[in-house]
């Protein structure tokens, strides 16, 4: 088994305003997905990041410049991640496909952890 990181990308901003009923439905869907990953023993971890653009640090003229994120050319940010295990990229992508994040307008970047 290999480990993969699913980066959850989303558009900058707060997204559509949902009613409490809709928020609950979405929450339940994500929970059910995470529960299934846990039951299959695949879920290695996960976190959600605060819904703000963050900061970007880069070296500039011998010192470090700190600017508001995200990178200037992008309109999206990483909203969180799940770490899962799978046999290969194919399986990792199939798993990512089942994540409700895609259904709600987000994008997922799948990356394999470095193995020795």
């Amino acid at each position: 088994m290999l480990d993969f990181m699913l980066f959850l990308h989303q558009d900058l901003g707060t997204g559509p305003i949902r009613s409490p009923e809709e928020m609950m439905a979405v929450t339940k869907e994500y929970m059910a997905w995470a529960d299934r990953m846990r039951a299959e023993g695949r879920l290695k971890g996960g976190e959600r990041l605060a819904n703000d653009p963050g900061k970007v640090l880069r070296p500039k003229g011998g010192r470090i410049a700190v600017t508001d994120g995200p990178y200037a050319e992008t309109k999206e940010l990483i909203g969180g991640y799940f770490a899962i295990s799978a046999t290969d990229y194919d399986e990792a992508c199939r798993i990512a496909e089942s994540c409700p994040h895609l259904k709600y307008g987000g994008r997922i970047e799948v990356r394999q952890f470095h193995t020795m």
Binding site: T14, P20, T27, Y30, R48
Partner: peptide, 18 residues
Amino acid sequence: VLQETFAAALARWPIDGA
């Protein structure tokens, strides 16, 4: 405030459990 509260549940509960 309510919107943020439910967004917090959406962010935490899938990871921590309800």
